[in-house]
Write a protein that binds this DNA or RNA. Structure first.
Lengths: 341, 341
DNA sequence: TTGTACGCGTTATCAA
DNA sequence: TTGATAACGCGTACAA
């Protein structure tokens, strides 16, 4: 077993408290004579002492660790934002423990319990659950908590992209290009972001088929494409509520005849290397850096003062289109609309 | 504060041990009369009791938690493999704590310390450090440990793609297409996978410029492309040691004249939607599912018997090319070579 | 069937 | 400048 304070105390003919004071390093260490201090330090390194953080945290009620529960770590969006949050937190002396709820309510509950019971100083959550009540039963009041990407009404500390604005700039861009009829492929209806995005599409354009809902994976995009294929010729655009769905669609487009002009693909988040794709694409780009930094900022203020009053933050998105889109964007039926270029 | 066993004992006129026995649930619970059992349970839910896992783990020396430290969670490869490992472990009753060393030796050390001192039952590591010695000083002997993606000589429990084979099938495919001269863009030289891949490229083909090393990000790919541009016309292929670098290269290709025939891009890992890209691409695809499952299997056997003797596992990769590549693959100078299709 | 008492490894309080 | 000693919250051998 790993040596403990007792071992070092015995080895060095002192007491555990002395050893603790020396090894904890703080201001207390200076109150110990240099002689014993050196003796203790020497013994510690010689025996390979490693403090038991479980015991320390049990005593101090601090862990210097933040929990982050995301809904799908396989999605590069969350991977990227996770890496930014980690870097930002480490500057403030916090470590990050990342958990993946995999868009599964049971797993979310499990990790919520695990992470809170295991001791963390703060929590960042991309929630699956939708109501403040359920949240309150899962996480102890008093624990600094910031919601990320999916706000919940009534919870003050939250950071997310402005869904209405993000969808609006996307629709504006499409409308300017003359789009009137679209097909919509969306993620799970019970996820607020997906649902809301789909609603806005449906509100702004005429649908050639009912909205297709499914897990936010490539496979759903492909399946939806196959299913909607007969009606797709009427649509000027295919609207996807996230990048995975869109990649499935784009994959499928590759399988069919590219000579007939392909529909525009409208999508949230980035499509890698889209400038080279022979399909017109327009994205609503979230400001990931801003999301990460604001989230950490909110959490840090909460960490300082758990009673701090915060307000939900909305961060605007920017539309971005590829070359193929810019070529066709002088299409018929321009619509007068204020675009937030 | 959250209620403890003492609170419930007081509330229910029993002792902590009784409460503990009931709430721990195991075989002990049946040795308690149904009457008090119900009374205790009722009080527990009424007071909203949540066991303190720090204290429990301190006592039992078990956490049912596995640590996973990856080198770059922003890379979809690690995000995906992380999600697979998480799912697989949760079937065996373990939770996963994911940490991001961000390809930074200090952070790796920090998390290694944190995660081991904080108590985990096992560890999966994508190591940055290269020598068994350094590893041994960081992680306590006796802790079940499996290396992922980057083997270290002398460490038995490790799972990785067979780098030699993966690079070989890639080179074979290129050679068959008549490639003789290439440019190589590689990740950090101190990372074994990147270094080894670059070496094999250099060994099989003639280089039009020295190998370009840099952080494994898109930006490096772009910079390398710019820098090598003058010499690129002589190269029939650009070889990248990971997908991020390749995406940077592909982005850059989009900026130049596409009418002159573009070079082949050879790369490890997947390039999304590559069938639609107007550039010939050939990838060496790692079997991520297999990697994840084997890693978990190794860890589970180690968890059962920490003294179990394991052997490093190598998993073969498969070459995959896109449409644009298949069109040009009847190029001159075919080379007789056994391809592992 | 239930309660008492101790230990897990650490920090904090109080004397000396 | 140091050392006993009591928590932190939990599980469990031992006793009743």
């Amino acid at each position: 077993m790993s040596p403990t304070l007792v071992d070092i105390a015995r080895e060095t003919k002192t007491s555990v408290s002395t050893v603790s004071r020396v090894l904890s390093g703080g201001a207390m260490a200076n109150r110990i004579s240099k002689a014993t201090r050196d003796r203790v330090k020497e013994a510690a390194t010689r025996l390979g002492y490693r403090p038991n953080l479980l015991a320390r945290s049990l005593r101090t009620r601090k862990t210097h660790t933040i929990g982050l529960i995301v809904s799908d770590i396989a999605n590069p969006f969350y991977g990227y934002i996770g890496s930014l949050i980690e870097r930002s937190l480490s500057k403030s002396g916090y470590s990050l423990m990342l958990c993946n709820s995999a868009e599964d309510a049971n797993r979310e509950a499990d990790y919520l319990r695990l992470v809170t019971q295991r001791g963390i100083d703060g929590l960042i959550l991309v929630p699956l659950l939708k109501h403040k009540k359920n949240l309150q039963t899962m996480v102890p009041s008093g624990l600094p908590l910031v919601l990320l990407d999916r706000p919940i009404t009534g919870v003050d500390a939250s950071v997310a992209t402005d869904q209405e604005q993000a969808a609006t700039v996307l629709c504006d861009t499409l409308a300017k290009a003359g789009v009137r009829k679209v097909a919509v492929i969306a993620g799970p209806e019970y996820v607020s972001t997906h649902r809301r995005r789909a609603e806005i599409f449906a509100q702004r354009f005429e649908l050639v088929a009912p909205v297709h809902h499914g897990p936010a994976h490539k496979e759903t995009g492909r399946a939806a494409f196959r299913e909607m294929l007969p009606r797709l010729s009427e649509a000027q655009a295919i609207c996807c509520t996230n990048n995975f769905l869109a990649q499935g669609v784009i994959d499928s487009v590759a399988q069919i005849d590219l000579k007939s002009k392909p529909p525009i693909v409208a999508v949230f988040d980035e499509i890698p290397m889209m400038d080279l794709l022979p399909i017109p694409i327009v994205c609503s780009i979230q400001d990931v850096t801003q999301l990460a930094e604001t989230t950490v900022a909110q959490l840090l203020t909460l960490l300082e003062d758990p009673a701090a009053k915060l307000e939900p933050v909305m961060i605007p998105a920017k539309p971005l289109s590829n070359r193929a889109f810019q070529v066709i964007s002088f299409a018929p039926q321009p619509v007068a609309e204020a675009a937030t270029a």
